[in-house]
């Protein structure tokens, strides 16, 4: 099945400069694995949201993807 990932500018360094990616994954893949298979190191991931019913919802690392899911990946919050 196919999912669509959009990343913020910071992550483009890991995705060969691409802001959006299409990913072919097998059923039952947790979202964090899919994102990391796109080249983004797990420790860099802050939040992943899935667009559902026109709303951007934060999902857990272990959220199981369904065909056609649209994801957006954000960096972790930094500071002192």
């Amino acid at each position: 099945m196919k999912v669509y990932i959009e990343v913020t500018t910071w992550f483009k360094r890991f995705t060969g400069g691409n802001a959006s990616l299409e990913l072919e994954i097998s059923e039952g893949t947790p979202v964090v694995e899919a994102v990391s298979s796109a080249g983004i190191p797990k420790e860099e991931i802050g939040f992943i949201t899935v667009i559902k019913d026109n709303e951007n919802k934060i999902v857990d690392d272990q959220y199981i993807l369904t065909d056609g899911d649209r994801l957006k990946v954000y960096p972790a919050i930094i500071g002192g």
Partner: peptide, 13 residues
């Protein structure tokens, strides 16, 4: 980008 990188994720969530 520095700490202003936080604006985007915080605003999204």
């Amino acid at each position: 980008v520095g700490t202003p990188i936080n604006i985007e994720p915080l605003n999204a969530v």
